[in-house]
């Protein structure tokens, strides 16, 4: 059983779909998807979860979270 938070689990599910893209391209697509479909509180939660995970966080998820943070979620 996973111990990830729901938003972290969902972020991993999304990022898994875009491994065929470069990290930068994938981060753009993932962040854009979250902006289009995720409630702001979920995006904020993800940013917080990624910060807490630190270096253990999946690189694609972390890159997308950085874009969400810099772009105001």
């Amino acid at each position: 059983m996973t111990t990830m938070s729901p938003v972290m689990r969902m972020a991993h599910d999304i990022s898994a779909q875009f491994r065929h893209l470069s990290l930068g391209e994938a981060a753009d697509v993932i962040a854009d998807h979250m902006r289009k479909f995720w409630d702001p509180r979920m995006r904020a939660q993800l940013v917080a979860d990624v910060e807490q995970a630190g270096i253990h966080c999946d690189s694609h998820v972390a890159a997308a979270a950085r874009l969400l943070r810099s772009g105001g979620g």
Binding site: P6, K36, F37, D39, R41, M42
Partner: peptide, 18 residues
């Protein structure tokens, strides 16, 4: 102008108290 919660997100948010 922002999307809201989907059903599974409503359940998760109910459990986190928001």
């Amino acid at each position: 102008a922002e999307p809201g919660l989907r059903i599974p997100n409503m359940f998760d948010s109910a459990l986190d108290g928001s």
